[in-house]
Amino acid sequence: MLHWFNQHFISLKAFYATSSALLPWLITAFSLCFAYGLIAGLFFAPADYQQGDGFRIIYVHVPSAFTAMAIYAVMAVSGILTLVFRMKIAAICMSVSASIGAWFTFLALVTGAIWGKPMWGTWWIWDARLTSVLILLFLYFGFIALQSVIPDQQSRDRAGAIMAIVGVINLPIIHYSVIWWNTLHQGPTLSKLAAPSIAPDMLHPLLAMIAAFLFFYAVILLLRMRNQIVLREIKTQWVKEVMSHAS
């Protein structure tokens, strides 16, 4: 089992080969989910009885928020693999995920604000979810800043791993404390972005969009990981061979 993993995923060279086989499938999956989600969500899903067509931004907002959190989880798991098993591939996955995650978080905040303007009449409300997402963005910034100042590769990987682990232990605590804080300060009554129950016609495109965003992350992740692998292994024979084939 472990041997099989090593042959296909753990060693950088093998991962490079496996990922080039995986990429077309992932791109196809992304295109299908995205096309269905976008068309069904924007044109076929019924308008919300309260929010009208304004609610349709949910098909961007919720998937990006979900993906942003999922990416942090991926980073934390990769962090543990980096720290405990010294896996280079996990370290690469962790460091290239950070900026992707930060962009998704940013997207979630911007779409949240755009949604908030017609719904609440203001661009920003200190709603528990939005606040948590904002703090998630800070955590991403911290991680990226830390990795950008450490010159040595190995130390950069491991320091980043510790930061990712600290962040993931803290995230649920931060999330629940923000909810607590929100109720304490009597937040606005209309604080729920997602309706508690959602019609299947609305739900299916949403799920498709979430899947599409995750596939998109996987595609970008693999592309960036492949770049990193080449950069890190630039002096090895196999990279030289791959490069000579490519040119």
Partner: peptide, 19 residues
């Protein structure tokens, strides 16, 4: 860099302390 790293982690304490 250090404040950027740790201040987000301080938020729960800040919330319960002021709370």
């Amino acid at each position: 860099l250090l404040p950027i790293l740790i201040m987000p982690l301080y938020i729960p304490v800040l919330i319960f302390g002021t709370g």
